[in-house]
Amino acid sequence: MAAAAERFADRLAQALVVHDARLRLREETAQDADFVIALYADTRWEELRPVEWPETAKRDFLAQQSRLQSAHYREHYPGAELLLILRDEVPIGRLYLRAGASEVRLMDIALLGAECGHGIGGVLVRALQAQVQQQGQQLTLHVEPANPAQRLYQRLGFRLIENRGIYDFLGWSA
C-alpha cells in the first residue's frame, strides 16, 4: 500500500506544481506538530466563537482536539500518507489519504483560511480523481453537511453514499 500511496503523492505534487510552481507536498513529521495544531485551530475557530470561554481555553481545547484527531488517524488508517501542502516551503495546509486496493480515502484536506478559495483544494481533488480513475478505484471521504467544501464535491461529481450522523460519507468513481 505504501508504494501506491507514494505514487499518489507524487502525482498530486505534479498537479500542484502545474497549478502554481511554488506549491509542493511533503510528508508530515513530528516537527510539524505546532503547524498541524495551528491549522486545526484555524479551521475550527469559528465553531467556538459563540462559546463563552477565555481565548486561552479555546486554544487549549483546539490543541487537544487536534492531538486526538492525529492519534485517531494514525490508529485507524495505518499506511496513510500524511502530507503537508507548502508554498515557497511554508506550510499552508495538509492532505491525508490512504490508498487501498479498491478505494482511496481522502481522510482530510485542510487549508489555512487565507489560502481557501484559490483553487488548491480543487486541483488536489481533481488530480486524485484522475488517479483513481486510472486505477479503477473509488474515491471516498467524510464531510460535515454544512462544510463549504460540499459545493466543491458536488461540482466534482461526488454522490452521497450514506449520512453518518455528523458526517456525510461521499463517493466518486468514474
Rank of each mutant, 00 (worst) to 15 (best):
A38S: 14
E162W: 15
Y167D: 00
V90C: 08
I92W: 13
P54Q: 12
R87H: 04
I85M: 07
L12F: 07
I109M: 01
A114Q: 13
D88G: 03
Q135K: 03
G122N: 07
E89G: 01
A63M: 00
Q133I: 01
Y40Q: 06
D168R: 03
I85S: 13
R44V: 00
Q31G: 11
N163E: 15
Q129F: 05
I120G: 10
A2V: 09
Q131A: 11
P148V: 04
H76T: 12
E103C: 07
V104F: 15
C116I: 08
D88L: 03
D168K: 10
D168T: 00
G121C: 11
E28F: 11
F61K: 15
Q150D: 14
L124F: 09
R22M: 09
R126L: 04
I120K: 10
A110H: 12
M1E: 08
Y77V: 03
Q69L: 02
R44L: 01
R74V: 00
E75Q: 09
D10L: 12
Q133T: 13
V104N: 15
L139Q: 05
A57T: 01
Q131H: 05
D168E: 02
E89A: 13
L156H: 09
G157M: 04
Y96R: 09
L95G: 06
E103Y: 10
D34K: 04
L86P: 02
A33S: 03
A21I: 09
G100N: 03
R59I: 05
L111F: 01
L139N: 02
E6C: 02
R26T: 08
P50L: 06
G157F: 03
L124P: 05
L152N: 04
Y96S: 06
I92N: 08
G117D: 10
R155Q: 13
A127F: 08
V90S: 04
A21F: 00
T29W: 13
P50G: 11
R164Q: 12
E27Q: 13
A101F: 01
V143A: 14
D168M: 08
D34G: 07
D88Q: 09
G117A: 04
Q14S: 11
L39C: 13
L62G: 13
Q135I: 05
A15D: 06
A30Y: 11
A9P: 14
R151Y: 05
L97Y: 04
A38E: 14
A9K: 15
A9N: 15
E6Q: 07
W172H: 08
P91T: 01
A101R: 14
D34F: 07
L16H: 00
E46V: 02
A63H: 11
A57G: 02
G136F: 12
Q65H: 04
G136T: 13
A130L: 06
G171P: 10
A149D: 05
L156T: 06
A149S: 12
V36L: 15
L111K: 08
A41S: 09
H118I: 07
R49A: 11
I161P: 01
L170W: 05
A3T: 04
L86S: 05
R94E: 12
G157Y: 07
Y153N: 01
F169C: 05
L170K: 08
R105P: 06
D20L: 01
V143D: 06
A110C: 12
D32Y: 07
R11Y: 07
H72D: 10
D10K: 12
V143C: 11
Y40C: 08
E162Q: 14
